[in-house]
Amino acid sequence: MLGFLEGLRGRGAGTEAGDGTEQLPSHIYSEFFAEQLQTRKETNGQCLADDKSKSLLLDSFEAEASNQVEAPAATDHDAWIFGYGSLVWKADFPYIDRRRGFVWGFKRRFYQHSIDHRGIPERPGRVVTLLPGDPNQDRVYGVAYRIAASQKAAVLDHLDYREKNGYERCSLEFHEYPVATTTPIQVIMYVATQANDSYAGNVSEVASIARQIFSSAGPSGPNREYLFNLATAMAELFPGAVDEHLEELVVNVRRHIAEDEPHLLRQAVLEEIASILREKELPEQAQAQKLEELLMRCQQPGGREWLLHGALQQRRSET
């Protein structure tokens, strides 16, 4: 980076005709940042959302009822956990059986802030919770996991910690999919109510929520990955089921990625580069080191979303 910076300045990089922008940031961006950001875009937000992974979740679901090599025997003291968000595809606890199904009378909504998984306190993401709906019409689809009695206490402690950001346990009936004629199963599920500090609500509904998902990331990964994985899981495990809120968010976030992300990333990185170069009191070696640190941050998990969030904030302040 230092040699490239010295070489450009040695050639007298100045100002591009007509637009008043410095050539130096543009050269640095093209040489070091553009390809890296494109590579991250091609891999970012993938997982179950990748078309190449289609049917892997359903195939795994049908082939393996348990995630344990030697599962404890089922007893009348076992517990069932219902997952309707990330638990659908990421059950990081031991279970001895799992079934597809739904609960009546609720709507799934991205109305909960995430500050510990898909966002951070200063840039929260959005994850799902359940709202009361029509008890005869509304269904929320998901997966119920059977937890062996001997493992129940440890699993619930784990889930209490995992869902600590505003979620509380409740109990209700779960109906199996695709045939709901069997006896309902009593399940435990975690719901974030409006009383918790991280409850966000609709806040201008889909357009605003989509922008937040598009530009958020946390310790568990990009917020968009959570959205796309949930949509893919629903499509694979529950073909024909309709979730308009989820589907509308997917359309909006994918549009942001296709139409807004390239421009916003370039704008944000150019401004960061220009800001470093304007620090005239810094020797070139220190400026080069700061530029390398910027490049590393862009490549780290959440770096893309950090840039996007800043660019969107600036856009809003200008309008």
Score class of each variant (00 low, 15 high):
Leu5Ala: 07
Leu5Pro: 07
Glu6Cys: 08
Arg9Glu: 07
Ala13Pro: 01
Thr15Tyr: 12
Glu16Asp: 07
Ala17Lys: 14
Gly20Asn: 04
Thr21Trp: 08
Thr21Asp: 00
Thr21Glu: 01
Leu24Arg: 07
Pro25Arg: 09
Ile28Gly: 05
Glu31Met: 11
Glu31Gln: 13
Phe32Ala: 01
Gln36Asp: 05
Thr39Ser: 09
Arg40Ser: 08
Arg40Tyr: 12
Lys41Tyr: 14
Lys41Asn: 14
Thr43Ile: 13
Asn44Gln: 13
Asn44Cys: 10
Gln46Trp: 09
Gln46Thr: 14
Asp50Pro: 03
Asp51Gln: 15
Lys52Ser: 03
Lys54Met: 04
Ser55Tyr: 13
Leu56Ala: 03
Leu56Met: 03
Asp59Thr: 12
Ala65Asp: 06
Ala65Leu: 11
Gln68Pro: 05
Glu70Gln: 15
Ala71Tyr: 09
Ala74Lys: 12
Ala74Thr: 08
His77Trp: 10
Asp78Trp: 10
Ala79Pro: 00
Ala79Glu: 05
Trp80Asn: 05
Ile81Trp: 04
Ile81Ser: 01
Ile81His: 02
Phe82Ser: 00
Phe82Arg: 01
Gly83Asp: 04
Gly85Ala: 13
Gly85Met: 07
Gly85Arg: 04
Gly85Trp: 06
Val88Asn: 02
Val88Phe: 08
Trp89Pro: 00
Lys90Cys: 02
Ala91Ser: 06
Pro94Glu: 03
Pro94Trp: 11
Tyr95Lys: 04
Tyr95Leu: 02
Tyr95Ala: 02
Tyr95Gly: 00
Asp97Glu: 03
Arg99Tyr: 09
Arg99Ile: 10
Gly101Tyr: 07
Val103Met: 08
Trp104Tyr: 14
Gly105Gln: 04
Arg108Ser: 06
Phe110Met: 03
Phe110Thr: 03
His113Arg: 15
Asp116Phe: 12
His117Asp: 03
Arg123Asn: 13
Pro124Phe: 07
Gly125Cys: 10
Gly125Asp: 05
